[in-house]
Structures are given as C-alpha cells and as structure tokens.
Amino acid sequence: MDWHLLTKSILVTTEKNMRIYYFKGPVVVFGLLFPLIMFLTFFIGRDLDLILFFPGFLAMMLFFTASSVGPLITPWEKREKTYERLLSLPVILESIVIGDILAGAIFGAGISIIVFAACSLVLPLSVTSLPLLVLAFILGSVTFAALGTLLASPTTDNPSNIMMLSSLVRLPLMFISGIFIPLSQLTGWFFIFTSISPLTYLVDLFHAALNGDAVYPPWVDILVLIGVTLVFVWSAKVIQRRNLVKGI
C-alpha cells in the first residue's frame, strides 16, 4: 500500500465532504444555533455559575457539531447513488471512513473554536492549560466525528432512519455526561453512571484545561478518548466492510 496515495485519497475525500456537506448555509447555521439553544434552555434564568458550567457547554458544543453531519453522509451518498461512483475512484474503505471523520472534526473544531473565541470576549474565562485546551479540541472533535461516522455505517440509504438512530444515541449521552450537573458534585451510582459516557471525559478534560477543576487526571481522559475513538473507527470499518461484501 502506497502511503502517499492513501493520504491523498483521504484528503480529497475530506475536501469533497467539506464542500458538499458542510459548507452550506443551513448546516453552519444549524451547527451554531443548536448548541446555543440548548445552552439558553438549560442555563438562562436558573442563576447558575456560567464559568463553572462553561467547560460542559463547550464540550456539548463540540460533541454536537462534530457528530451532526457525519451520520448523514454515507446514507445520503447511497440514496443519491454517488456512493457507487465514489467507491470506484482510487480510494479504499479506510479513505472514505477517515475522510468522513476528518471533515466532521474540522467542522466541529472550527465552529467550537469560533464560539469559544466569541465567549471569551464577553465572559471572564480563564485558561489553566493551553496545551490541554488544544488537545481537548482536537481529541473531542475527532472522537465524536468518529461516532458520527459509526452512526452512518448501518445498512440503509434512508437518511431519516439514521437521523432517528443518531438522536437516540446522542441525546441521552448529553444527559449522563456531567454537563448539567458538574462531575465534582456527583456521587455514588450517578458518578459511576456518567463514567460510561465518553462525553464525560471530554467535559472533564475541558474542566482541566479551563477552570482546573477536573475529577479525573488528564491522562485518563486522554487515554479514554483515544481508546473510544479507535473502537468507533474500527467498528465503522467492520460494518462498512460487511456492507461491501453484501453489496449494499
């Protein structure tokens, strides 16, 4: 396998996704608006400490934007019948899977960084560790873009089925990840419950990077996020490979 060719095929796939699926008015507006609405719904008028909750909000934002469009790409391409042509171009399954993930990660990180920059103008945010913050943006966007691509993998050419599945998986994750109640205030079973959500570790990593009030050591967050990403990518690949064998 020629690495140069593989890299090239991944990058062109990413570019294709950005152009066709992400850089569209409604997509960008939705990406920005949805987390904002969630934010307003949960925080405004409840006299909460904005600074304390900001890492959770940022993680939610990144989680939502990075995994928003990814689930739709493959079903959409299958429905529009562009998938068959894409597969016959000089790509392999890995190029498509990784290209889809990269596009989602770029979109998620891009929008979240814009929102972070805007918020830091109006809120007195503190940054405890810049390297951790950068790492959190990168890891978080890649992990949840990978979740998006995994959600796109089941056999269907019907984007609305995937939308359902995607909401079914993503919404509950938000509620068990220490976004609305800080992890440090959770005890016993609640705490154990949150530890099964990968989003928890991103929330925690943002806490470490911004306020410095994380529950887990940063290396635990980082290892978990990397591990989860690998599982997502591997599963997406296995499922999509099986679809290729079935010819769908």
């Binding site: 562009t82 068959e84 016959s88 000089p90 392999i92």
Partner: peptide, 19 residues
C-alpha cells in the same frame, strides 16, 4: 492494491451518478 488498480480505470457504474 486497490488504489493502484483503480488509478488505471475510468468507471461509469450502472447505478452511480455524479454529485
């Protein structure tokens, strides 16, 4: 070596269209 092989081909699939 799928990529090298596919580089040699131009394909019009029966059920495939452009974007």
């Amino acid at each position: 070596d799928p990529i090298a092989a596919k580089l040699k081909m131009g394909v019009i699939p029966e059920n495939g269209t452009v974007y």
